[in-house]
Amino acid sequence: MQDFDFETRQFTPTQQVQRVRGVGLILKDLKTDSSNATLPLPEFCTRALEGRRELQDLERKIAGGKWKQEPGRDVIFSTEHGGLVDPVGFARTFDRLLKRSRVRRITLRLARKTCASLLAYLKVHPKVAQKILRHSEIKMTLDIYTQIVGDAEREATDMLSEMLEDPLIG
């Protein structure tokens, strides 16, 4: 959890889990300095991470001497004994949870595109969106990920929202 600052609600990624043939799972430094840039976290994400931290504290107590996490290797998403979670296994577990909850699965790319489009809808400055999305060039943010929503579209969706929320209609 060294990458999370719960007081300031910020995330600064420094490492990622990778599988190395013949070695197993390792923590590896991120490739670029921009990958290490600090991101603010929405409050609901911070609450979810605090809940995960509490669950992990309970897992640590239950595991006792079997806890595998070394000091300084404080990962928030770990196995029940503190080990690193295989990214492939994580994806499989995530897919099972989605299926069980009947939520449509979307790719990471689509999630990023949705985030970019929502930021554009909220009229967030493109340079801010670029930083949040970790794009090295603004062209990537504007041309590939963002579906610009103009004032006419925004006005139409606002009117639609008002109509659907009207207690006499909706």
Rank of each mutant, 00 (worst) to 15 (best):
H135G: 04
S117P: 01
L110W: 13
C115L: 15
C115G: 13
S117D: 14
A111V: 07
R100N: 07
G150S: 11
L97K: 08
A116E: 00
L97T: 11
L108Q: 05
T93H: 12
F94R: 04
R105T: 02
K123G: 02
G89R: 14
K127V: 05
R96G: 01
R104V: 04
H135Y: 03
R102T: 00
L133F: 13
D143R: 08
K127D: 05
S117F: 00
M140R: 14
R92E: 10
V124H: 06
L108H: 03
V128P: 06
A120P: 07
A129W: 10
V149N: 05
S101P: 01
I138Y: 02
H135V: 01
T141M: 10
A111E: 13
I106Y: 07
V124S: 05
L110P: 02
R112D: 08
S101C: 13
P87K: 15
R102F: 00
H135P: 03
R109C: 07
E137R: 15
L110T: 13
I148F: 15
L97Q: 09
R112I: 03
P126T: 09
K99S: 09
A120M: 12
R100T: 14
D143C: 02
T141N: 09
A91E: 10
H125K: 09
S136Q: 11
A129V: 02
D95K: 11
L133G: 07
I106M: 12
P87D: 14
K139F: 00
S101L: 09
V124N: 02
C115Y: 10
V128L: 08
L142N: 13
V149P: 05
L122D: 13
V103H: 04
R96S: 07
L98P: 01
R104A: 11
S136K: 13
K123L: 02
T114D: 06
T114V: 09
Q130P: 03
D143E: 15
R92P: 01
A111M: 13
L142Y: 07
M140E: 14
Y121K: 15
H125P: 02
R100I: 07
I132F: 04
T146W: 10
K99H: 04
I106S: 05
G150N: 15
A91C: 04
S101N: 06
C115A: 15
D95I: 02
Q147L: 13
D143M: 01
D143K: 08
Y145P: 03
R134L: 02
S101Y: 04
I148M: 13
T107F: 05
V128H: 14
V88C: 14
R105S: 06
L133D: 07
I132K: 05
K131M: 02
V128R: 12
V103M: 09
K139Q: 15
T93I: 06
R109L: 06
R105A: 05
A129S: 15
C115W: 07
L110E: 14
R109S: 08
A116Q: 01
S136A: 11
L97C: 09
Q147S: 11
R102I: 00
H135F: 01
A120T: 10
